[in-house]
Structure formats: structure tokens, C-alpha cells
Design a protein around this nucleic acid. Structure first.
Length: 422
RNA sequence: GUGAUCGUAGCUCAAUCGGUUAGAGCGUCGGACUGUGGCUCCGAAGGCUGAGGGUUCAAGUCCCUUCGGUCACCCCA
């Protein structure tokens, strides 16, 4: 085998691609219902967009970016996530001149240089929304509710919603200092990795699975308790709006997320059926990001969901996705001399949006029937010299096997009628 | 970036202590009295055993390297 798809990438074959199209169609409907409009940004950006947007200390920027130089010597990067490009576009295209908030959604591939594993690929697909310009906690709740409702709309049932508040920039340094002190006092009871985390990234201490660490961190001070008055009230209102819609959630104080730009609300939705990479969607508020990009102080809130993880979860839950067979009519050609007439009929039907196909393999009539059957056509039309002469063709229902005769001149009418009824 | 594990037809798998022309099921294609599918039966095509090197009289099988898959860590969708 000479050529293979690059490591961590794969071809999405028709069966799965069809399901993805359904998922994207459903998402589009719902995003639209919530007032979001589409935006399509470039698949690569100047590298600084991500360095600045995501934060240069994050794993994404430090080790996961597909960065390359183009022939003009520019450093470009395949987008590892969708928020930074949207914010760049918001500022570049002066969307602060539009009525606020600006509510946008996107869907498409993202790229991260990581070791592949279950639910993780180097090219993966995300759908996401961003609401830029409002700091209303109702927007936070809307984002969370939209994502949860979408998952429910496509049939998922077993979901866990985690929420947290990261506080403002002013809260976090204060808290981190407290956390460091606490961890330092208990240093001996922490595992080696965690001892390093005290300096590197103390928030990560909460993620350790080591038993001793779990005990220590169970009693650790929580960020939520160090929020200032405004952040606390904001978080309370978000929770209230969630409860009003009957949404149950679990507060997870250690929910930090690996992007530097989050402030206040963060959330994550997990499917317990998924394996190690079980976050199927997540997001949060980013009130400093626009400023970070050099724009005016502008709050924002958004989420992203992983399309393949969603598809896997749906598969695991055994939810069936409706797939439609576009090909409805097969024209079986009994005699080579009528092939031109068959082709005419083919395009006549297609022009009326009746999914139609013929044999292109020079098959015998029997083989044509077999192929039509395997490909799942609903009807087969028999066309031969006789039919052409008398102007009447046989239509076979491929499920029941019953046949009926229809005038050739009325055939197009006949099928477009049937298809409209369906 | 770290670790574990695996790599034989399109797919799922066989192949005794290393031992002749590497097999099967499914799928694909064709046929079973001349213009009618699905079931059944028959037949055909399809593999440099991931790649490269080594050990051996002999390698799918043992060793090394490399590429890739899978799973986990880190982290995330």
C-alpha cells in the first residue's frame, strides 16, 4: 500500500459522512433558532492569532499547533480551535458596529498535533457558537442550554453537565496564591507529578487521580469561594437560569479548561460512554479576549462541540440517525439500442428531483436487477425495444416485487407525484 | 512528548516445534435454458503476510529499525 492518509487523519466514508451531514443540519436549525448566524473563517491564520488568543503557555500553543511558513515567509498555523479566528474577524471587520451581541456559529475541521487515541485525531471537526458583546448571565445560560438541547435533539440521553466559575482576572491570582500555599503545606502527601504542578499549574492539582492527592485536594480551598461579589452574583444567576429550564448540573470546582482566555463561567458536557476523551462539548466566557486582541473591552461567551465524539456517543447509545436514500428509481436497460432513450428518461426524472440512476457497467438485465437491489432502489423501470414501441413500461416495486404498467409519456409525472407524497 | 499493544485478501480472522504452490467466511463480479433482484447453489477475481534490514538450508512465524493502527498518560473536542 503506497499512500495512506496522514497519521491521525482518516477518510470519512459515505455512511458516516451522511450521518455527519444530518448532525450538522440539525445543529444549523437549532443555532438559527437561538439567533446565531453562520461565519466561515479561514482554515489557517497568522500564527500570532492563536498565540495571542489561546495563550502561549497552553499545551495547544506549546506543542500542538500545525505551524508552517508560506512562500512569502509568513508564519501560518492551521486552526486548532474556532474561537480565536472568530474574535479576530469580529475586530477586523468592525462587528462592534453591529447590534450587540453578535451571535455567530461555525462548523469545520480543526487541527492539533497530538498522539491519536480514542476520540482524538489530528484533524477533527467542531461546531461552535460565539455570542460577543454581552456580559449578561442569561447569555451564559443560553450557551449551555443550546448545547445541551442540541445533544438532546439528536437523541443523546446520558450526559453530564459540569459547570464552574473561574472568576475574574482579579480573583484568580489571589486564589492561586492561596492554593499554592495549601498545596505547599501538604507537599509530602502529593504525588511527584503534583509536586511539580504546585509551581507549574496548581489548578491542575484537582485533576490528579492519585488517591492520596484526591484526599488532599478534597479539602483544598476552591476557587468558587474566592470569587468577588460580582462574579459570585453572575454565577448565581447563570445557575438560576439553568434551573428555570429544568437543567441539572454538577458544579466542578476543578473545571479549568486548557485555554487561557476563560473568565467566569466555564462548562463541559461529558458522555460516560466515551472512554478517556469523554468531553463531547464545552466552553465558557471570555471577557478579556477581545481586548487581548487589541479591540475595545468586549465580553463574550461560546462553546465548541466535537463532531466525531458526538457521533461516537450517538453510536454508543444506540441512537439511530435517519438516513435518506436519494436514489429512488433505477432504469434497467434490456436492450442496448434503447440506451439513448434510457439516458433521456434518466435526465427527465432527475430534472424533477427524482433520484435516478442506470447501469454503467454493461451488465446483463439480471445483473442490473441484482445491483439495483443491493443498492437499495425503491423502483426499477424496465426499458427495452418493446416498451419503446408500445410506449408502456413496467415499474417494479423492489420491496414487494409487484409490477405495474405505466405509459412512458406519463412516467415522469408518475414518479414526481410519488416522490412529492413521500 | 511518554508508555503499552498490534500490523496476513476490501472487511473479520486461520496457518502445528520456523518447513512445500498462505486458507476460510463475508463482500465484490459472473453464471444457474434464451428480457426480471433479494433465498439457494456453482464459479472467478483479489495477498511481495505494512515497509526495510538481519539470523537460518528454510521466515507470515525469530531479532533490529521504521511507518501505521489501537489504548492510556499529558491535555483536550
Amino acid at each position: 500500500m503506497q499512500f495512506r492518509a496522514p497519521k491521525g487523519t482518516t477518510d470519512i466514508l459515505s455512511d458516516i459522512a451522511t450521518k455527519w451531514q444530518y448532525l450538522e443540519r440539525k445543529a444549523t436549525e437549532l443555532f438559527k433558532a437561538y439567533g446565531y448566524k453562520p461565519i466561515i473563517t479561514p482554515i489557517f491564520e497568522n500564527t500570532e492569532v492563536f498565540q495571542r488568543g489561546i495563550g502561549s503557555s497552553t499545551d495547544i500553543v506549546q506543542k500542538e499547533m500545525y505551524t508552517f511558513e508560506d512562500k512569502g515567509g509568513r508564519s501560518l498555523t492551521l486552526r486548532p480551535e474556532g474561537t480565536a479566528p472568530v474574535i479576530r474577524a469580529y475586530i477586523e471587520r468592525n462587528m462592534n458596529q453591529l447590534p450587540q451581541p453578535v451571535k455567530l456559529y461555525y462548523m469545520g475541521p480543526m487541527f492539533r498535533y497530538e498522539r491519536p487515541q480514542a476520540g482524538r485525531y489530528r484533524q477533527f471537526w467542531q461546531m461552535g457558537v460565539e455570542a460577543i458583546g454581552s456580559d449578561d448571565p442569561a447569555i451564559d445560560a443560553e450557551s449551555i442550554l443550546l448545547l445541551m438541547n442540541y445533544f438532546k435533539a439528536v437523541g443523546l440521553k446520558e450526559l453530564i453537565l459540569y459547570i464552574n466559575s473561574m472568576g475574574c482576572e482579579s480573583d484568580r491570582p489571589k486564589y492561586i496564591q492561596v492554593l499554592r500555599e495549601y498545596a505547599g503545606e501538604n507537599r509530602k502527601r502529593l504525588c511527584r507529578d503534583c509536586q511539580k504542578r504546585i509551581e507549574l499549574n496548581p489548578l491542575r492539582l484537582f485533576d490528579c487521580k492519585d488517591e492520596s492527592c484526591l484526599v488532599v485536594m478534597g479539602d483544598a480551598p476552591k476557587l468558587i469561594d474566592y470569587l468577588d461579589e460580582g462574579c459570585r452574583r453572575h454565577f448565581g444567576t447563570v445557575k438560576h437560569y439553568l434551573e428555570m429550564q429544568g437543567m441539572t448540573y454538577i458544579i466542578k470546582p476543578e473545571l479549568v479548561r486548557g485555554l487561557d482566555y476563560y473568565t467566569k463561567t466555564t462548562f463541559e458536557i461529558v458522555s460516560p460512554l466515551l472512554g478517556a476523551q469523554n468531553a463531547i462539548g464545552g466552553g465558557g466566557r471570555y471577557d478579556r479576549l477581545v481586548e487581548e486582541f487589541g479591540g475595545p473591552p468586549t465580553p463574550g461567551m461560546g462553546f465548541a462541540l466535537g463532531t466525531e465524539r458526538l457521533a461516537i456517543a450517538i453510536e454508543e447509545e444506540g441512537v439511530s440517525i435517519p438516513t435518506e436514500d436519494k436514489n429512488d428509481v433505477f432504469i434497467a436497460v434490456a436492450d442496448d439500442v434503447v440506451k439513448p432513450a434510457a439516458i433521456n428518461l434518466l435526465y427527465a426524472l432527475r430534472s424533477r428531483s427524482v433520484g435516478t440512476d442506470v447501469d454503467y457497467m454493461g451488465r446483463s438485465l439480471k445483473a442490473q436487477l441484482r445491483a439495483a437491489s443491493r443498492r437499495g432502489f425503491r423502483y426499477t423501470v424496465f426499458l427495452g425495444s418493446q416498451e419503446l414501441e408500445i410506449g408502456i413500461v413496467a415499474i417494479r416495486d423492489m420491496e414487494s416485487g409487484e409490477q405495474q404498467e405505466v405509459k412512458l409519456s406519463e412516467l415522469v409525472q408518475y414518479f414526481s407525484g410519488i416522490m412529492e407524497r413521500v
